[in-house]
Amino acid sequence: MEENEHIRLITRHLSRETSSEEEASLRQWLEGDPAHRQQFDALRNVWDTSGDVIRDMPFDTAAAWEKIAPSPPPPSVRRSPTPLRLLSPRLVAAASVLLALCIAAGWYYLTRQHPLQQVIAAADNQQLTLPDGSKVWLRKGAGLKYQDPFNKGLREVQLTGEAFFQPISDPARPFRIRTIHGAIEDIGTTFLVRDRDSMDEVFVITGKVKLTTGEDPSQSLVLSSGQKATILKNKLSPSDWGTPNMMSWKTGALEFRQTPLDQVVQDINDHFGSQLNIAPGLEVEKIKITARFDHQHLDQVLDEIKLLTGLHIIRIKDTLLFVRQ
């Protein structure tokens, strides 16, 4: 993408003038670097704030007309209506460039005033405290960007990967998490966010959260404790948790209560990052596991499951396979 081309695309996007090809180019630019999303959000914030200022300015139309036309001209000297002349393309282009520069200047001012911090949990899970006292647990490999201090009216962070959030309650300053797929806003709660390549998953532990998609903020969904939702291709889909083990990476514990074998395998793979599978032909719905594992190694977990089920495990390249012999 040419230099400053993204500013032109953002300006057209905010004006709702982009073509489908331009939207695809903008989406590709946003997904290319988490910093691009931060810049987009800052520019949109300037755009929205500017709109509010314009709408809030009082304007007395009648008084304005009085100043430029105190009395109508006599009938004898009235002119016939002059055809409306459209602005030249050159003038329209100049106005668009000026607007883009104003937005860029606003973004520079916002980021200069509030330095951007970046934390990456490269080696292990990592806990951190944000400038307002909110707590975040990043899963290994996850990253978080935020301004320090937060803006006066909004506490916003940019997430890649998976993290558990425990925000400080402040109704005057919403707490918002942005990903490439959408936004999650706290309504007095604790919750887990998984930012995947193709979609987001949000699990609400306590309280409520509000979700919006990345391309259409008017499309929203409020989740309550015990609920889950996915943001996939700009669609919001609510559901139940499905598994109680989505926090196992933070707690170190896996718990199964009459859990079907396929769900057990899915939870183990998510917890350990393993490649465990089930051989074709096994009636997985009839094989259920009741067990608890607390900070145990993968080998210990698999040995106990083999004892409980009578199954065996074979290795095929990098994949471990449950089989019946």
Rank of each mutant, 00 (worst) to 15 (best):
P74E: 13
P149Y: 07
I278K: 06
F272E: 01
S225V: 00
I278S: 08
R78H: 00
T212R: 14
E156Y: 09
A229M: 04
V97D: 05
A24N: 13
S25E: 14
S134L: 03
T243V: 10
E156W: 05
G141E: 08
V136D: 05
L99G: 10
L307P: 01
L320A: 10
S96A: 12
S224D: 04
W65V: 04
E156N: 13
E162N: 12
K210F: 02
A24C: 03
L307C: 07
S198R: 08
D195W: 00
A42M: 12
D41L: 12
N245V: 03
M247Y: 08
T18E: 11
R196C: 06
V301A: 09
P260H: 05
L282V: 06
D197C: 03
V157G: 06
D60N: 15
S220R: 12
D48I: 13
F272M: 05
L9M: 05
R85I: 00
E2D: 08
P149L: 06
G133F: 12
W249R: 04
Q28T: 07
V301D: 03
R112W: 13
M246E: 02
A62C: 03
K228C: 04
T61Q: 01
S218I: 01
R196S: 05
D132K: 14
S274Q: 05
F322A: 07
H295M: 07
A95G: 09
G133H: 12
R178S: 05
Q300N: 05
R78P: 00
G214N: 10
N269I: 05
S19N: 05
Q300K: 11
S134F: 03
D41N: 14
D148Y: 08
C102L: 11
K228F: 00
W29N: 15
N277H: 06
P81Q: 02
V92T: 11
D303E: 14
L223G: 03
L302P: 02
F293K: 04
E22W: 07
S198G: 01
H181E: 10
L276Q: 09
Q126N: 02
P75Q: 14
W29A: 15
F165T: 12
A229G: 02
T251I: 08
L87D: 15
V119D: 01
V46P: 13
R324M: 06
P81T: 00
L130C: 06
E21I: 14
A69F: 02
D270G: 11
L9V: 10
Q296S: 10
V204I: 03
S198P: 00
F164S: 11
Q258I: 04
Q275P: 00
G273L: 06
R324F: 08
R37Q: 08
Y146F: 11
H6G: 10
A63E: 15
D240R: 02
Q113E: 11
K233N: 13
I289Q: 02
I268N: 05
P72K: 00
S80H: 00
